[in-house]
């Protein structure tokens, strides 16, 4: 499934400075076709800023974002129509019914056979019974799944998921992970996945990019990451990186 010869997403020397603060500092990574790449790091590591730059919501101070082989800033609208995103920090309008929200975004993304697709994604996330409910009355977990439905509507070739299981109970989180794996398997979707849940990462991601204070500390598979940091679990790695920037274990990627 993985085709790294022609990355779907290629981030090169991406930097974002807000005044003196460098939220993202020269990061480079790529996501291949059908690959799920985990973007990990503590709060303030720069994950969400990186995602916002990939979505074109934040303009990079330096570096480039190429999606589907094209520069994002040059073909933003064309690229955005082939990707989608879901973030725990956004909601769909609470006054609208579930189907109304999905219909609006389905039309924006020009989804063919929209009514059928809406039914499909609702079924995929197991919230078909909520179709006529007012979105603002949904529980946090149901709201997150609705957000995911929005993100899957246009069968995105590149999907950005920013902490998609943050507000979900273990049962629903497991179902979401399975949906993510399923769309990768069935549709070859490339996914950039941020999470603080190490179980998510171990179960879903092919490779991991570990970020700390805007820089990338390490990129590799789960096994490679554990070996690099000399830890038994990704959670231990996460804690060490959060507390010491991983300096205790290893140097920054690329350093001798």
């Amino acid at each position: 499934m993985l085709l790294m010869d022609s990355p779907v997403l290629q981030v090169t020397d991406l930097t974002k400075a807000f005044g003196e603060v460098r939220s993202v500092d020269g990061i480079s990574f790529e996501v291949g076709k059908g690959e799920i790449l985990g973007l990990l790091g503590a709060n303030g590591a720069g994950k969400t800023t990186a995602i916002n730059m990939i979505l074109g919501i934040v303009t990079p101070s330096a570096g480039s974002v190429q999606v589907f082989g094209e520069e994002l800033h040059a073909s933003r609208i064309k690229i955005l129509s082939r990707m989608n995103f879901c973030s725990t920090y956004t909601q769909l309008p609470g006054n609208l019914r579930v189907w109304q929200n999905l219909k609006v975004f389905g039309k924006i993304y020009r989804v063919p056979q929209l009514s059928r697709r809406i039914d499909e994604v609702l079924e995929m996330l197991e919230i078909s019974h909520l179709k006529n409910r007012v979105s603002g009355e949904l529980s946090a977990g149901e709201g997150t799944r609705l957000n995911l439905c929005k993100a899957l509507l246009n069968r995105p070739e590149l999907l950005l998921l920013d902490e998609p299981t943050a507000s979900l109970d273990p049962d629903i989180a497991d179902k979401v992970r399975k949906v993510v794996s399923r769309i990768r398997e069935e549709e070859g979707t490339s996914i950039l996945y941020t999470s603080h849940n190490m179980r998510d990462v171990e179960e879903v991601c092919d490779r991991i990019v570990f970020m700390h204070k805007g820089t990338i500390l390490f990129t590799g598979t789960s096994e490679e990451t554990l070996k690099h940091f000399e830890k038994d679990s990704l959670e231990d790695v996460f804690i060490e990186v959060a507390r010491s920037g991983g300096i205790a274990s290893r140097k920054k990627e690329g350093e001798p």
Binding site: N52, F85, S87, P93, I108, Y109
Partner: peptide
Amino acid sequence: LEDVWSRNLLNVFAAPVT
């Protein structure tokens, strides 16, 4: 403001909307 109040702003501006 409706988009701001409903925290929907990023959904709209991250969509193919010029």
